[in-house]
Amino acid sequence: MPKYLISFEKGSMDHIPAGDWAEVGKAAHAVCQEAKDAGVFVFAGGLRYDDGDVEAAVVAVDGTVTDGPYPESKELIGGVLIVDVPTREAALEWAAEIAVACRCAQDVRKFMFDPELVD
């Protein structure tokens, strides 16, 4: 089945009051558990931007490492959910659930299929 990346931009959840974070986390975990139970969960996680050990870096083809995101990058990912579902419509349904849980819009993109990478 095709895999889809469901993601949101860094800062998309900045409107959430500090007192609501536990509830949002619980709701997001519930959607991920639902995806696991449905057999479509591949991976989920949020990216940290508040810890010096997790700074973005760009590694060039010559091995040079530059701190920070790719210079032309205008968007930074805040969090992701990857699902393995039969259709785009199914991916959009999961995106709708995670949008409600995380209280922010979600971007949905299909991964390219590469038969050489299939187990």
Rank of each mutant, 00 (worst) to 15 (best):
50 D>M: 05
1 M>K: 10
23 E>Y: 07
95 A>E: 04
88 R>A: 13
112 M>Q: 01
17 P>N: 14
62 D>F: 02
5 L>P: 08
90 A>T: 04
25 G>K: 13
9 E>T: 12
21 W>F: 14
87 T>S: 04
6 I>D: 11
43 F>K: 10
75 E>A: 05
61 V>G: 03
117 L>D: 02
22 A>H: 12
73 S>H: 09
18 A>L: 14
112 M>I: 08
112 M>R: 02
21 W>R: 15
24 V>K: 11
68 G>M: 09
13 M>Q: 15
84 D>S: 02
49 Y>R: 08
7 S>W: 01
26 K>M: 14
35 A>V: 00
49 Y>M: 02
82 I>R: 03
77 I>P: 03
32 C>R: 08
39 G>V: 08
50 D>E: 13
70 Y>E: 02
15 H>E: 08
112 M>Y: 08
69 P>E: 05
9 E>Y: 14
19 G>R: 15
99 A>D: 05
102 C>Q: 11
57 A>C: 03
113 F>Y: 12
8 F>H: 06
34 E>I: 06
40 V>N: 05
40 V>G: 00
87 T>G: 06
45 G>E: 06
118 V>D: 10
17 P>T: 15
52 G>P: 04
110 K>V: 05
14 D>R: 15
71 P>N: 04
78 G>R: 00
103 R>E: 03
107 D>T: 15
23 E>V: 15
98 I>C: 02
115 P>A: 05
7 S>R: 07
114 D>A: 09
94 W>F: 03
8 F>P: 07
85 V>I: 05
4 Y>S: 11
51 D>G: 02
104 C>N: 10
36 K>F: 05
17 P>K: 13
109 R>N: 11
92 L>T: 04
67 D>F: 05
60 A>M: 13
68 G>R: 03
67 D>G: 04
61 V>T: 10
81 L>K: 02
26 K>E: 15
106 Q>S: 03
77 I>A: 06
11 G>C: 15
118 V>P: 00
52 G>A: 05
115 P>S: 08
22 A>Q: 13
106 Q>H: 09
53 D>Y: 07
109 R>T: 08
41 F>A: 09
95 A>V: 01
17 P>H: 15
91 A>M: 08
71 P>E: 04
118 V>E: 10
76 L>G: 06
27 A>D: 11
61 V>M: 07
16 I>Y: 07
36 K>P: 03
2 P>S: 12
56 A>L: 10
28 A>L: 09
54 V>E: 04
43 F>P: 01
